[in-house]
Amino acid sequence: MKYLSLSVALASVLILATGCSSTKGGAGMVGYDSNVKYGDAKAVETLTDAFGSTDLQSSAETLTQSLLQSRYIASAAQPPKVRLRSVNNLTYEHIDTKAITDKIRIKLLKSGQVRFLADKANLGEVYDERNLTTTVTDNKNIKLMTDADYVITGNVRSIKKASDDVKDVYYNISLELVNPQTGEIVWADEKEIRKVTSKSTVGW
């Protein structure tokens, strides 16, 4: 009995040690059962404070509406030719900014108020396609293909601040419509997003 009591006491010590030392930092990446279902693509997503689908959708929506209302687009005699250049990612996250520009392009094209030229990344493939069909370079046609009335550029920025209990992330997505001939910025707008994450007071 004496030894049994001692065993229990020592076992408690060891179990405590085991529990402590095997405490894992696990990020919930492994060992979980999957349960796949369809979700609403437009539903608000607040899983983390990272730039997510809701931010992408709301940014594209706001900036596209603003651009379509600008007089350079709304009052143009005929839909201007626009080339979307890259949107720079200046944040702390690996954001696929191509997803933002693609979404904006689709929304603008659907409006019928602008015409789009192939962007820089795809221009090489367009050249290749032309070379297959024309043996002599047609400078006039090439010029039509490359000359844009306007160029859209932009930046995604973020400011992150954290205290003991609160994390604050501010995103600023800005776009500019630039006349490539003059360098004049004829339109610019921004979408601001702020996300605040609070730590639980007590938790696992």
Partner: peptide, 28 residues
Amino acid sequence: EYENRATISVRNIGSFVGSSLLSKGSET
């Protein structure tokens, strides 16, 4: 995940108690 744990985290307390009373090796 570690940096975003609750202010009073059971795991952090466990690790702290383990490393304070039993062994340095109890720390994650």
